[in-house]
């Protein structure tokens, strides 16, 4: 056989090739100094890497990064200043109230002043996301809640594959009346996939709410409009470009 590609050799080096292909590559390597040398370089790189950053240390770094991403985005948005955020929140809340019938799951249900706005930070450009605007990988999203009385609020994002992520790591959070941003921000993964934001007001039992939400997600699809199993929840579809 001719020289395997780098990709094939890299896969071979970590036993990622299926039987017949691996045998073929193995036979080639026995007679090829160049490929043998390449594999030796890869193994040396593996050992050097693990010596420099052992697995346990790396996992801690990644674990910390998962939490840090949220806070980093927070600080960036915070720099815009409270005044700007208030104006944006007000504008977004107005937009939401006007457009709620377009994307709310509850149709004619009166929500007594509860509202959800999504602020998108894209390369430093922050504004409230209109219903016809889209998201893409790398966007940071901040969720701003408006409610007429203090309650506990929980929020989740659900992707089209049915994965559920909490917006508030602790589950739910007590918020005052008026406008409040949920702590942290969501960073849209790349490649982007459509998301559904689900916000529940007046949470009494977070565990129960999350269980009902999980039960309401059908296989591989976000339900359109209804069927979330959370009476009183607001949902908002966040579509990718």
């Amino acid at each position: 056989m001719s020289h395997p590609s780098n990709f094939i050799l890299e896969r071979f080096s970590v036993n990622d090739l299926a039987g017949p292909s691996a045998l073929e590559v193995e036979q080639h390597i026995r007679a090829c100094d160049g490929c043998t040398q390449f594999l030796a370089q890869l193994e040396a790189a593996r050992k050097a890497r693990l010596a420099a950053v052992p697995a346990a240390q790396f996992v801690e770094q990644v674990s910390a990064r998962r939490a840090r991403v949220v806070r980093l985005v927070d600080h960036r948005i915070a720099r815009l200043g409270a005044a700007a955020m208030t104006v944006l929140a007000a504008a977004a809340a107005i937009l939401l109230f006007v457009r709620r019938p377009d994307h709310g799951p509850l149709g004619g249900v009166t929500l007594k002043g509860s509202g959800v706005a999504v602020h998108r930070n894209r390369g430093g450009d922050v504004h409230a996301l209109a219903s016809d605007e889209t998201i893409r990988g790398g966007d940071a999203l901040r969720i701003v809640i408006t409610q007429s009385r203090p309650t506990r609020v929980a929020a989740w994002v659900v992707d089209v594959q049915g994965r559920i992520d909490r917006v508030v790591e602790e589950g739910s959070i007590a918020l005052p009346s008026g406008e409040s941003a949920l702590p942290g921000s969501l960073v849209v993964d790349s490649p982007c996939i459509d998301l559904e934001l689900v916000v529940l007001f007046g949470v009494e039992s977070f565990q129960d709410a999350e269980r009902r939400l999980k039960e309401a997600i059908p296989d591989g699809a976000i339900p359109e409009g209804t069927g979330w199993g959370l009476p009183g929840a607001l949902t908002r579809r966040l579509r990718c470009e």
């Binding site: 890497r49 697995a55 346990a56």
Partner: peptide
């Protein structure tokens, strides 16, 4: 950790 140990360098 196992995935990192095996594939991290690649």
């Amino acid at each position: 950790a196992e995935a990192y140990g095996r594939y991290g360098h690649l």
